[in-house]
Design a binder for these strands. Structure first.
Length: 271
DNA sequence: AGCGGAACCTGTCGGC
DNA sequence: TGCCGACAGGTTCCGC
């Protein structure tokens, strides 16, 4: 569901809500969701603790406590919803976090997400293996040249590989490649090295624009206040199979690659 | 090492 | 109306 812009939007909304607030209590409704066989320990670790900061790393949401970090990933359908104390708990709720004056719930219909507590000094495996943040200096043409050079897989898959760049998913990978006029199935090793600086610029442009529009809502993604994002109206190719390309009018094509749909304009985007 | 495919879940939509 | 298959913002694991 959520890619970097959606997670960034949620983190920005959680910050003023949770920073300096104490977790009064926590109830886990689906304990198999937790990355631990001891859900009671998770609750024990966090109850009564104060959230010092809320941060994002890739598509992961981090609540920093003095003695560790609560790590969550929203998978495809996860969301945090702010509820009044007496509101009915919706279907598919995973966890309830109670604060002074409100409850925050984690809800995830398909249960592809993740929730864990990482004690201070430890880094959970999935975060350890993340590549650089798109807005960091570590993402530079030299680094990407190394990554692309040896890979035969399609550029779209490389852009979506969290170990190479953290945060891009199917929507924004498709949109970035449309803007570059590069075919999503072009082998990574064929990507012209001279265009790597432009690739980085476009990744940042697309992500920034999506963040400004509070992310993309196709069906499930909702903000903490249940409002939708606005970037779906700006999408050029994602989800637009058979619609005319907004640049040249050719029908947009959908093609499956590695189990995911690649959307592209067959005349604008070249191998 | 890198790649493709399946698996993990539930819901929705389109076609017959 | 109803059933069935395809598909959905993701990640991980397994076998080649």
């Amino acid at each position: 569901m959520p890619e970097l812009p959606e997670v960034e939007t949620i983190v920005r909304e959680l910050k003023p809500l949770l920073t300096e607030k104490k977790i009064l209590s926590c109830t886990i409704l689906r304990d198999t969701y937790l990355e631990t066989d001891d859900p009671e320990d998770f609750v024990k670790q966090i109850e009564g603790r104060v959230i010092l900061a809320v941060e994002r790393r890739g598509k992961y949401i981090l609540w920093k406590l003095a003695h560790g970090t609560i790590v969550s990933h929203l998978g495809m359908t996860g969301k945090f919803i702010r509820l009044a104390k007496d509101d009915i708990i919706p279907k598919h709720t995973i966890a309830i976090f109670r604060f002074d004056g409100f409850n925050l719930i984690l809800n995830d219909m398909r249960r592809f997400g993740l929730l864990l507590f990482a004690p201070a000094g430890t880094t959970p495996g999935p975060i350890e293996s993340l590549g650089p943040e798109p807005f960091s200096e570590e993402l530079n043409p030299d680094y990407l040249a190394e990554m692309f050079k040896v890979r035969s897989r399609p550029v779209k898959e490389i852009l979506m590989d969290q170990g190479i760049i953290a945060g891009l998913g199917n929507i924004y990978a498709c949109e970035v490649l449309f803007r570059l006029k590069i075919h999503p199935l072009m082998p990574g090793s064929h990507f012209p090295a001279a265009r790597l600086p432009q690739l980085i610029t476009v990744i940042r442009e697309v992500l920034n624009e999506a963040i400004e529009h509070a992310g993309t809502t196709i069906s499930d993604y909702k903000r903490v206040d249940e409002k939708s994002g606005e970037y779906q109206d700006m999408l050029m190719v994602y989800g637009r199979e058979k619609e005319p390309c907004k640049v040249c009018g050719t029908a947009i094509v959908r093609e499956t690659s590695n189990g995911r749909s690649a959307f592209y304009c067959p005349s604008c985007q070249l191998m």
